[in-house]
């Protein structure tokens, strides 16, 4: 025992056995100190991907185009992903240093306007070709659901455009994401033609309608009046509501079943907790059946090739 003690005295544990296999007594205190320092600094802002060492913007842009299976013009794509705020920030930095502000590069604000026009026009063309019986008013509702900042930002985020957009602030705002997506569509139209750009809009934007119920977009304010007008316009007899059955009358679980008839043929059927409710539901059902947007409609064709956009634009502008 004495021998052992003496051994320890002659070979103290600290510092002497460095590099050999041993308990790392310095590890825990180091980690603790680092952690304390981190706590003291407070929460850090997330660092954007383009500040990392492994980042090659040209390679990223090429890969982005290849992922979408498209050939982009490099300069057009670069401009499409350049936000206004980035140029402003750069000019501000130049001013601070004392350089006359003035950059040769252009941002995507003009491109995004043109891209927006293209997307709006194509989505309208697609919807009016696939839902020909639906009135324009309701087509506009569906279009508004598809083409808005929220939806376009969601799409561009899931395409991985967050890292590629050059902008001042991080994380990227919704409006910036949407603007960049519109500009990318316009960049594709410039590099490989409007048809390719339209196909991309169909595959990315219109395909968000898959498996979606269209009836909430096609519900009129006054269904009975709308149905009367619809039948009148088609030369059919005025609608006649008939009560098919009532269950649980005068209870809170009352259920009315009403059918809408025109020339003794049932054109719609609806349920509701009161007769009025059931009648308006039956009117809606009759209209949805007539417009081919009900729950039993055929799925939308997502591989559809449409006429060139210019022809559609001319046809909508002339009448």
């Amino acid at each position: 025992m004495i021998v052992v003690r003496r051994l320890f005295q002659t070979f103290p544990t600290t510092g002497v056995v460095q590099g050999s296999r041993h308990f790392h007594r310095w590890l825990a205190p180091t980690l603790k100190t680092l952690n304390n320092r981190r706590k003291k600094m407070g929460p850090q802002e997330p660092s954007p991907r383009n500040t990392f060492a492994e980042w090659n913007y040209d390679a990223e842009l090429y890969a982005f185009g290849q992922r979408l299976q498209e050939d982009f013009d490099k300069d057009a794509l670069k401009q499409a992903l350049l936000d206004q705020s980035f140029i402003q920030e750069q000019e501000h930095q130049q001013q601070e240093v004392g350089i006359e502000p003035g950059l040769e590069i252009q941002d995507n604000s003009k491109m995004s306007l043109e891209g927006d026009r293209l997307i709006q026009l194509y989505v309208e063309q697609y919807l009016s070709s696939t839902l020909p019986k639906l009135p324009k008013k309701y087509i506009r509702n569906i279009k508004a659901h598809l083409v808005n900042d929220e939806m376009l930002a969601y799409i561009s985020k899931d395409l991985g455009m967050r890292d590629l957009i050059q902008r001042a602030n991080y994380p990227v705002e919704e409006a910036v994401l949407a603007r960049s997506f519109k500009s990318v569509i316009q960049a594709l139209a410039l590099s490989s033609g409007e048809d390719r750009a339209c196909a991309l809009v169909r595959d990315l934007v219109v395909s968000q309608l898959v498996g979606r119920d269209l009836t909430p977009f096609c519900t009129p304010d006054d269904p009975l009046e709308e149905l009367k007008n619809h039948l009148k316009a088609n030369g059919q007899e005025a609608p006649e509501p008939r009560l098919i059955s009532v269950i649980g009358k005068n209870t809170i679980l009352a259920s009315y079943d009403v059918g809408m008839y025109s020339s003794k043929v049932m054109i719609g059927r609806g349920f509701g907790e009161s007769a009025d409710m059931a009648q308006s539901m039956a009117c809606c059902d009759a209209l949805w059946r007539a417009w081919d947007v009900g729950t039993k409609r055929k799925p939308l064709p997502f591989k559809l090739e449409l006429l060139p956009l210019a022809k559609f634009a001319a046809s909508t502008a002339s009448p």
């Binding site: 899931d158 595959d203 990315l204 968000q208 898959v210």
Partner: peptide, 8 residues
């Protein structure tokens, strides 16, 4: 993600 494969 993004209804991938419905279009392309």
């Amino acid at each position: 993600p993004l209804n991938n494969g419905v279009g392309r």
